[in-house]
Amino acid sequence: MSYCLGIDIGSAYSKGVLMDDRELRASYYCLSGGDFRLTADKIKKELLSQADITSKDISRTVATGYGSKMVAFADKEITDISCHSKAISTLFPSVKTIVDFGDLYSKVFLIDGKGNLLNFLLSGKCAGGSARVLKVMAKVLQVNIENLGDLSFKAKKDIEFNTGCAVFAESEVISRVAEGFAKEDLLAAIHKALSAQCYSLAERLGIERDFALTGGGARNKGLIKAMGDLAGMDVHVPDAPHMTAALGAAILADEALKRLEVRGQNFFVDK
């Protein structure tokens, strides 16, 4: 048995994936909260109990995400960009361009056929364009975030919505609600604005086929459809897009472990 743990401490949610020789054994996610160190411990504990193993059984841990430096028990930190790339290229080997809808930023990266990162871009600070805007909208419109996408499909009217930035979008949406616009129409407009912004970011890097979406925002069907329409091609989306980085971290941990084993240094990793 060689258990590998991938743990992704994001700015909003944290996720963990436990694998045994490339087989998924447990997964878990929760709000990141204020203390990343505690959150990391909590996730680990939860995964261990799900798989019914102890800490000693874990051969290698890779931490990723915004708060990866706070995961005290990790053997290595790797950025979420590399972790997403690894997981996506494992799941969908033909993918070259990935858009990650994160809470803090949207990111676009290009990978080669082997999951190696070739170039990347993050949404700008001023331009906004992160998935946080969806969360804000769900709150303002009092809609369950899971239903945002479906609701947006019911839009009847095209309305104008300008900002992809969460701060401005909030006040813009509030004033639109006051003007009597329908929820569905507003949501469709927001999805359109956000996807236009992210697609534009991807264009800046140059979109190469195939195209995949990942990150928490990629759970939203409205966004997936809008991005697909803009790209004029099918998009690949993992079943649990919010877990992708944690999965990639676990895969990278597994790969490193195997490399180390080949070098005959297994004892070193096992401690």
Binding site: N162, L201, E203
Partner: peptide
């Protein structure tokens, strides 16, 4: 009324 998208690919915000 036209959100800036393409322009942001080549010009800083």
């Amino acid at each position: 009324h036209e959100p800036i998208t393409k322009g942001d690919n080549l010009m800083e915000t």
